[in-house]
Simulated scan of single mutants.
Amino acid sequence: MSSGTDHEDRFRRVYAADFQPLLAYALRRVAHPEDAADVVAETLLVAWRRREDLPPDGEARLWLYGVARRVLANHHRGGVRRQRLGERLRHRITATMAADPGSEVPERLAVRAALARLGELDREVLMLTVWEGLEPREAASVLRVSPAVVRTRLSRARARLRELVGDDLGPPGHVPGVLAAPAPKEGR
């Protein structure tokens, strides 16, 4: 049986490993950075309260994405602003935004507008696989659907996004890079 200290240590490891990806996940899904801070804070509060239930290390991030997805749904549905974090967290958000290459792509607004025109599940599948770098089976775990549904939705979402944005070839990082299938990860 594990002690409370073991669960606290495990939570600290998960926090250290998954804070930045979780923050990037939230930043890409809200209009204001302070809303992302609220989503991450609430997600980590759930993780802290349920630290004894955290899945194994390889699945903890997927579990956190699932929690964050539900927090975001509540945030969007209710339209209620969450408590703002202190200056330290805002500083981390600024550092993360500056390091996110997606925020430097000139076509970012066109991509966001096109993404907004996709259905909710298609948009989320595309964002999880392209921006968060998840495999279809991992995205399926976050979304609680089958991997086959994710693969079908991903194909359809890419095709629809190409229609909306265009598929002209440009330098690396250009919009078509968003539309291309990611290279398979080794060992999977």
Results as ranks from 00 to 15, higher is better:
residue 39 V to M: 01
residue 42 E to T: 05
residue 42 E to Q: 01
residue 46 V to C: 00
residue 47 A to M: 03
residue 47 A to F: 02
residue 47 A to L: 01
residue 48 W to Q: 00
residue 49 R to M: 00
residue 50 R to A: 04
residue 51 R to F: 03
residue 52 E to W: 03
residue 54 L to M: 01
residue 58 G to D: 13
residue 59 E to P: 02
residue 59 E to W: 06
residue 65 Y to R: 03
residue 67 V to R: 03
residue 69 R to G: 14
residue 73 A to T: 14
residue 73 A to P: 09
residue 77 R to Y: 10
residue 80 V to D: 04
residue 81 R to H: 13
residue 82 R to F: 15
residue 84 R to I: 12
residue 84 R to A: 10
residue 84 R to W: 15
residue 85 L to W: 03
residue 85 L to V: 13
residue 86 G to F: 13
residue 89 L to V: 14
residue 90 R to H: 10
residue 91 H to E: 15
residue 93 I to A: 06
residue 94 T to P: 08
residue 95 A to Q: 12
residue 95 A to S: 13
residue 95 A to N: 12
residue 96 T to P: 07
residue 96 T to F: 06
residue 96 T to S: 06
residue 96 T to H: 01
residue 98 A to S: 09
residue 101 P to Y: 10
residue 101 P to E: 02
residue 102 G to Y: 14
residue 103 S to A: 15
residue 106 P to S: 12
residue 107 E to R: 08
residue 109 L to I: 11
residue 110 A to G: 15
residue 110 A to C: 11
residue 110 A to N: 11
residue 111 V to H: 06
residue 112 R to Q: 15
residue 113 A to Y: 04
residue 115 L to T: 09
residue 115 L to K: 07
residue 116 A to H: 06
residue 117 R to G: 02
residue 118 L to A: 04
residue 123 R to N: 06
residue 124 E to Y: 03
residue 124 E to M: 05
residue 124 E to S: 01
residue 125 V to A: 04
residue 125 V to W: 00
residue 126 L to F: 15
residue 128 L to I: 11
residue 130 V to A: 05
residue 130 V to T: 08
residue 130 V to R: 10
residue 131 W to F: 14
residue 134 L to R: 00
residue 135 E to L: 07
residue 136 P to E: 02
residue 137 R to F: 14
residue 139 A to T: 11
residue 140 A to F: 01
residue 143 L to F: 11
residue 145 V to C: 06
residue 145 V to E: 03
residue 147 P to C: 11
residue 147 P to G: 10
residue 148 A to E: 13
residue 150 V to N: 05
residue 151 R to T: 12
residue 151 R to P: 05
residue 152 T to M: 06
residue 155 S to N: 12
residue 156 R to V: 05
residue 156 R to P: 10
residue 161 L to A: 11
residue 161 L to V: 05
residue 161 L to C: 07
residue 162 R to H: 08
residue 163 E to A: 07
residue 169 L to P: 05
residue 171 P to D: 10
residue 173 G to C: 09
residue 174 H to A: 12
residue 177 G to Q: 05
residue 177 G to H: 05
